[in-house]
């Protein structure tokens, strides 16, 4: 589904990605772990061209989206993205947050969009909040809203950029549960996370990033149970205690 080849990205003099190649298959749930500054968020943000890589290619559903002539808006509709800081739209109600993109981009009619939005809200237990503004929601509720807002575009893949890092501890569980339920339905997902237990539980594959490259890749059992790379061992010994 997404094929990444030899991706390089720098911010000024700082080289953040030093040649990343990876193939994410349809239906696969891939977690990306690693220390801060290892390039994992940048890698994720390159997948939908929020960051433009200097070189390398990203082939999404057969199209190299790094090419300049590609209309990225069209491909982004197929890639949902969830941010650490939710980025829900504060000037719109919960319902409007969800229906905006389907009505504006996909030209879905308003009633149909609202019907679909309500189904999604019920799935994540926010149906009674439909007319609230996001300022009245808790962090966990905002993130659940952000997730269904992305789902409303019926994406082929969901990208999660540390979805629980900005949450109060007691709200982490509810968001992780929503993501767990989601990936069970067969959705393709790439998840950058610091929640090791979660990564172990939901992933088909775990990527360990270090120094701008994927240092190790394998099943959760391989990575967490029997890591081969000394950097992976060192990282895991620091985070699993």
């Amino acid at each position: 589904m997404i094929k990444v080849e030899n991706l390089h990205k720098s911010f000024g003099d700082l080289e953040v990605l030093k040649g990343v190649s990876e193939h994410i298959k349809k239906g696969e749930v891939v977690s990306v772990i690693g220390a801060s500054g290892s390039g994992k968020s940048t890698f994720l943000r390159c997948l939908n061209m929020l960051e433009e890589p200097e070189s390398g290619s990203i082939i999404f559903e057969g199209v190299d989206i790094t090419q300049e002539k590609v209309n990225i808006d069209v491909h982004r509709q197929k890639m949902g993205m969830i941010f650490q800081h939710f980025n829900v739209f504060p000037h719109m109600t919960v319902l409007e947050n969800i229906t905006l993109a389907p009505t504006l981009v996909k030209k879905m009619d308003k009633e149909k969009a609202e019907e679909m939005a309500m189904q999604l809200l019920e799935r994540v237990g926010l149906a009674d909040k439909r007319d609230e503004y996001p300022r009245r929601l808790s962090g966990g509720q905002k993130q659940r809203l952000a997730i269904v807002r992305a789902l409303a575009m019926e994406p082929d893949v969901m990208l999660f950029d540390e979805p629980t890092s900005a949450l109060d501890p007691e709200m982490v569980g509810e968001v992780l549960q929503v993501i767990k339920d989601l990936v069970k339905t067969g959705l393709t997902a790439v998840i950058v996370t610091h929640e090791m237990g979660f990564a172990k539980e939901v992933s088909d594959r775990v990527l360990f990033m270090d120094g701008g490259v994927i240092a190790e890749s394998g099943t959760p059992d391989q990575i967490f149970g029997n890591p081969q790379n000394p950097r992976t061992k060192e990282f895991l010994s620091k985070v699993l205690y």
């Binding site: 929020l50 982004r76 941010f83 980025n87 905006l100 993109a101 504006l104 981009v105 996909k106 807002r149």
Partner: peptide
């Protein structure tokens, strides 16, 4: 917040939208 524009673009909205 620049995150607002990022979220909108990720939903497939164009720059002018």
């Amino acid at each position: 917040d620049p995150g607002q524009a990022e979220a909108a673009r990720c939903l497939g909205l164009s720059q002018s939208q």
